[in-house]
């Protein structure tokens, strides 16, 4: 009986998995839709712009955190560190393979970190560019 239940749930799960390309692609697709509705001329995310955002220094956010690199280290391939000294796994997808797959987690940290660093939310374009850069790394 228990085995049967397991088999049924596995069978029920598979079509659902096949239907979407994967959670990371879903996150990007969602951002693309938003970017397009912001700007009709939107022509795709750009890793080079994402790199600029990652390295830029801002004076509009909280003084303790002028840049994404304040915590994520200056290279996406290196581990970072929070202000309290806790290690952060590298942001580059090639180094941390399970990144950007949980849409709630991605949104939560963009909201917090953009607010801390830039003093405002990031736009869908900025978020997509940032992810394009990290995925290319």
């Amino acid at each position: 009986m228990r085995n049967l239940l397991i088999i049924i749930s596995i069978l029920a799960f598979f079509p659902a998995m096949a239907a979407s390309a994967g959670p990371r692609e879903d996150v990007i697709a969602q951002l693309e839709t938003l970017a397009k509705s912001d700007d009709a001329n939107f022509s795709g995310f750009d890793a080079a712009r994402g790199k600029k955002l990652f390295s830029a220094k801002f004076s509009t956010g909280k003084p303790e955190t002028p840049s994404c690199t304040s915590c994520h280290s200056t290279s996406p391939k290196n581990a970072g560190e929070t202000r309290a000294g806790k290690a952060i796994d590298p942001m580059a997808l090639s180094k941390t393979s399970d990144r950007y797959t949980d849409p709630k987690k991605v949104e939560k940290w963009f909201r917090r970190n953009c607010n801390s660093v830039l003093g405002r939310e990031c736009t869908p374009l900025e978020k997509g560019d940032f992810l394009a850069f990290m995925i290319s790394q």
């Binding site: 955190t65 202000r83 939560k108």
Partner: peptide, 11 residues
């Protein structure tokens, strides 16, 4: 939490 010791930790 949105101003947690100089950081945004909102939930």
């Amino acid at each position: 939490l949105e101003n947690h010791f100089g950081e945004d930790a909102s939930l």
